[in-house]
C-alpha cells in the first residue's frame, strides 16, 4: 500500500488525479475502522492532515468556509455561534477522542446515510466545495448524496471545504441513539429557520438510503409561518404536529439492527415537532442563534 503525504493542496489534487482509486484520509475515524475490520484494503492512501488550508476556517463572501479537515471539536469550540446546527450535531458525535479526529469533510466523503453532520448541513443549505486538477466547483449539499455511501464526488476530486451561510434564525438538531452517548444515529433531524428568506430548512438522517430534506414539510411550515415571522406569535400546536407528520412522511427507512422502520418514522415525527417548538420559542425571544 502506498501512503502519500502531500504538503500542499495542489500536491494533493495531483496525487488524486494520478491515483484515482486512492482513498483520502483525514481523521481516519471511518477509513481506519474499515481497514481494521478488513473491509477496505486501499492500494493508496492520501493523508490530507498536512495540507494547511484544509485545517482552517474563515469568512468568505458572507459564508463560513469550513476547511474539510477541521475536526468536530473545533466546530464546537470555535463555531458554536456561527454554525449552531452543525455544532449541535458535532456534540452528538462519538467520544471526545473521535471529535478530536473526525471531520465534516470525512463525513461527506463517506456519505453514510447515518453521518451526523448531514441533517445539519441540509437544513442550513450548505454547499460542498470540491476540487480537482481540473478546477473547483460547488455542489449544493442536497445534490451531493447520490446513494448509500455514494456521493457526487468524481474520482479525481477531493473535498476542499463546506460553505455555510451563518444563520438568520434559530437552528436545532436532534438525534436518536439507543445509548446516551457514542452511538450511531437510529434517526436524526436538523432544522433551520430562515426568517431572512421566509424559508425553512430540514435534514433527515438514518432514515433513507441517503440523507435527505423533507421538502413538503418545509413548504408547509413556510406557509404556516407566513405572517407569524413578523408577529412572532405563538405557533399552533397542530402546526408543529403536522410538520412532524410531514417530516416523517419524507423518510424511507428500513428495519436494521439499530431500529425498526416504524420506530424511525415515529421518532422523526417527535423530533421534528419538538425541535420546531424549541426553535420557534427561540425565534419569539428574538435570539437568532440560541440553541
Amino acid at each position: 500500500m502506498d501512503f502519500l503525504q502531500p504538503a500542499t493542496w495542489a500536491e494533493a489534487l495531483e496525487a488524486k488525479a494520478a491515483a484515482r482509486e486512492a482513498v483520502p484520509i483525514a481523521g481516519g475515524t471511518d477509513v481506519m475502522v474499515a481497514v481494521n475490520f478488513g473491509r477496505l484494503r486501499p492500494t493508496t492512501l492520501i493523508d490530507l492532515t498536512r495540507v494547511p488550508e484544509l485545517q482552517e476556517w474563515g469568512l468568505d463572501d458572507g459564508a463560513v468556509r469550513l476547511g474539510a479537515g477541521v475536526p468536530y471539536a473545533r466546530v464546537i469550540t470555535e463555531l458554536g455561534g456561527r454554525l449552531p446546527g452543525l455544532a449541535m450535531a458535532a456534540r452528538t458525535i462519538g467520544s471526545p477522542q473521535i471529535r478530536n479526529r473526525g471531520t465534516v469533510g470525512g463525513n461527506l466523503a463517506t456519505a453514510s446515510p447515518a453521518g451526523d453532520a448531514h441533517p445539519a448541513l441540509l437544513a442550513a443549505g450548505a454547499e460542498v466545495e470540491v476540487a480537482s486538477v481540473r478546477g473547483t466547483r460547488r455542489i449544493p449539499v442536497s445534490e451531493f448524496y447520490r446513494g448509500v455511501k455514494r456521493s457526487a464526488l468524481a474520482d479525481d476530486e477531493l473535498i476542499a471545504a463546506v460553505r455555510i451561510r451563518p444563520p438568520a434564525g434559530p437552528q436545532q438538531y436532534s438525534k436518536i441513539g439507543t445509548r446516551n452517548a457514542m452511538v450511531i444515529a437510529v434517526a436524526a433531524f436538523g432544522l433551520a429557520l430562515h426568517p431572512d428568506r421566509r424559508a425553512v430548512g430540514t435534514g433527515i438522517g438514518s432514515a433513507a438510503p441517503t440523507p435527505r430534506r423533507a421538502p413538503e414539510a418545509e413548504e408547509f411550515l413556510a406557509g404556516e409561518l407566513d405572517g407569524l415571522w413578523e408577529s412572532r406569535g405563538e405557533l399552533p400546536a397542530a402546526t408543529a404536529g403536522r410538520f412532524g407528520e410531514l417530516v416523517a412522511a419524507a423518510a424511507a427507512p428500513i428495519d436494521d439492527v439499530r431500529g425498526t422502520a416504524a420506530y424511525r418514522v415515529h421518532a422523526l415525527s417527535v423530533m421534528a415537532r419538538r425541535t420546531l417548538t424549541w426553535a420557534w420559542a427561540d425565534y419569539r425571544k428574538g435570539d437568532p442563534t440560541c440553541a
Partner: peptide
C-alpha cells in the same frame, strides 16, 4: 436527560 447531548428532549415526555 434521556438521549443526553443528542438533544431529544428538554423534559417533554
Amino acid at each position: 436527560m434521556p438521549g443526553g447531548v443528542s438533544n431529544t428532549t428538554h423534559g417533554e415526555g
